[in-house]
């Protein structure tokens, strides 16, 4: 399933609805729908907010597909400014409430919820591949 997303924050709601349809059609549980939609929200929001600082209207692509070995592959490609989400330090999740800062939390959550994330910068485009397991590993092995 391929989506063309405008760099407008209202697009998140549209994407969530489409992902719900995708998950229902592929018999993906509500729990995994939750993880997939949270991952997409965080990464797509980053692009909408920061990839196009000139304020112009742009379109980038989000592709989501279920593989035969029970993964969901998410591929996001944008032609905004170079940004490697994996280069950021993880937030300190053990600091007290007064010192606690929110920066970097979105990407940290994406890392926690996915099997692997790959970033590449090719021909002036950011390409992000995120792999999400939709069946627990034990179940995958048939045990």
């Amino acid at each position: 399933m391929l989506f063309e997303i405008k760099n407008k924050i209202d697009e998140i709601g549209y994407l969530c609805d489409e992902v719900k349809t995708f998950c229902n059609a592929n018999h993906i549980s509500n729990e995994k729908y939750h993880d997939i939609v949270l991952i997409l929200d965080e990464m797509v929001t980053n692009i909408i907010m920061y990839a196009y600082p000139d304020g112009g209207e742009y379109i980038f692509s989000v592709e989501i597909e279920k593989t035969n070995d029970n993964f969901v592959n998410i591929t996001i490609v944008d032609n905004g400014i170079a940004f490697d989400p994996l280069a950021k330090d993880d937030p300190n999740t053990s600091s007290g409430i007064e010192e606690r800062e929110i920066g970097g939390l979105g990407i940290f959550l994406v890392k926690q919820l996915s099997e692997c994330i790959e970033y590449s910068r090719i021909d002036e485009h950011n390409k992000l591949n995120i792999k999400v397991a939709i069946v627990k590993k034990e179940e995958n092995n048939g045990s």
């Binding site: 939750h34 939609v37 949270l38 929200d41 965080e42 929001t45 929110i102 939390l105 979105g106 959550l109």
Partner: peptide
């Protein structure tokens, strides 16, 4: 709620 993103956690 359906989910909470880092924007909501903030």
């Amino acid at each position: 709620i359906d989910y909470i993103s880092s924007a909501g956690l903030r």
